[in-house]
Structures are given as C-alpha cells and as structure tokens.
Write a protein that binds this DNA or RNA. Structure first.
Lengths: 115, 115
DNA sequence: TTCATAATTCGATAATACAGGAAATATTGT
DNA sequence: ACAATATTTCCTGTATTATCGAATTATGAA
C-alpha cells in the first residue's frame, strides 16, 4: 500500500459517523448492510450516510453491490488488512524492541507459519 | 480507547506530511528526533513541520521532551498499540471468520498468554 | 549581555470537508 | 405507466484545516 492510499483510507475512518458505520459493517461480515439500515441504526440522516459511505468506498475500505432496491455495503477486509499491515511496517520491522502490535502478540513474523 | 480519541488519532496520521513524520519517528524508537531534523529529512518547511508535529502531539501519538535547544519528538508506542487494538476490536472479536489481522496471525486472543 | 540556533506562535489567505434540504436516479410492485 | 421505496447527487452556507511569512520564545555559546 502506498502512502497516499493510506492517507485516504485513514482519512475515511477519521470521522465520527464514518468510523461508526465502518465498525458496524465490520461486525456484519461479507453480507453487509444497506445504507438506510446503517443510517437508522446510527441515527444519521440518509443523505449524510450516503455521503459518508461514498467516502469509505472511494477509500476502498468498503465495497457495494445492489440487491433489489437496496445497495449493500460491506467491508473489504483485505483492504483493511493491508492498511493495518502498512501501519505496523515501520514499527516492528525496524524496531523489534518497541513494538506497537496489539495484545502483546509475538513480533516474529514466523508466527504466521504456525497452524 | 473511545471513538472520539480514535477519530483524532486517525485524523492525525491521515495527512501526507504527518504520516511521513510519524513513520519516520517509528523507526527511531524512544530516542526520537528533533523537529528540524524531521523537516530536513522530509523536505518540509520548519514552520509546517512544527504545525503538523503539534497535531500528532495533540492526538497523543507522539510525546516531546527538550534536550538543550532541541525538542525531541518520539512515538508513544502504547498509544499506537491502543489505536491498532481499537481498529481490530470489531473485526476478529465478532467475526473470527473474516479477520482483518495482518499476516494471518492467529485470531485467538489466548495467543497473548503464550511465552 | 549579545549573538546565533531551534522551534513555535500568530495573522491572513486558500483549500477542503461537513451539514441540510431539494431534486434526481434506480428498482420493485400494482 | 404509475406510485412507492432506497439511495444518491446537487446546491448553498458554514466550519475546519493547510500554507506561508513574519514575529516570538527558549536555549546555548562567545
């Protein structure tokens, strides 16, 4: 992921309503939710929600697909993974001592090879 | 970490110059770097660098300490860890199947208890 | 104390982003 | 074709953020 992509992705979730929507979508998995349902759940006006969801989509963090008269928004988990990887790169990669990995997870990349 | 804190922290690194500065500081560990050195390295005017570093500090992502006529900026790794944890909460917590953890790390929190 | 260096703060301007409501588009059911 | 639903796009005003240069504060050295 390039710096510019990260800036856009970070900017997308650096807003109250969008962060709330994104986190809600994360809990829904690939099925996702339509804009209206998200708006209702978060008590945000539909036109606002649409605006914010468009920003998340531009940032690549969510994808859309139409289902009848609904448009379903769902998280692009791989994109999110890429963003988190990007944020950790300069941390543990060059500085194993002071690691920013959450929950005291092992810093050794070989952990990925375990079952 | 509260939503509002996350929004501020994310907004802090959602900017080209600040993201570059933050990533540079991450590679430096607790020692950090003075504003001038960062500005020179990134080819950013000192007054702008100062402005952006102040934003990172307000967001809690970096701390400062004076050393002679230098003011050293360094990453608050715990804060960064908290932010990353926050971002992953709604992912693997509620949805072990579609996980956004980087590098295929185990999703089971008990991993933290291993040696 | 006076000079030079490191960095920040201030004031003005320019660029972006946010919010609300009206209008437009797409889809389904009658 | 028509009405209803789901959602987006457009327009306007407002607020936040970024940039630049000049002035200011803090420190160390002569």
């Amino acid at each position: 992921m390039k710096d510019q992509d990260a800036v856009i992705a970070l900017g997308a979730i650096a807003q109250e309503d969008r962060l709330a929507a994104f986190r809600l979508l994360m809990t829904r998995g690939p099925d996702g939710l339509p804009s209206g349902a998200i708006a209702e759940r978060l008590e945000i006006q539909p036109t606002r929600m649409s605006f914010h969801l468009a920003a998340l989509e531009r940032a690549g963090l969510v994808t859309t697909r139409r289902d009848g008269r609904h448009i379903l928004y769902s998280v692009d988990y791989e994109r999110m993974r890429n963003l988190l990887t990007f944020l950790m790169e300069d941390c543990c990669g060059n500085n194993p001592d002071v690691c920013c990995l959450p929950a005291n997870r092992p810093t050794n990349p070989s952990i990925a090879d375990r079952t």
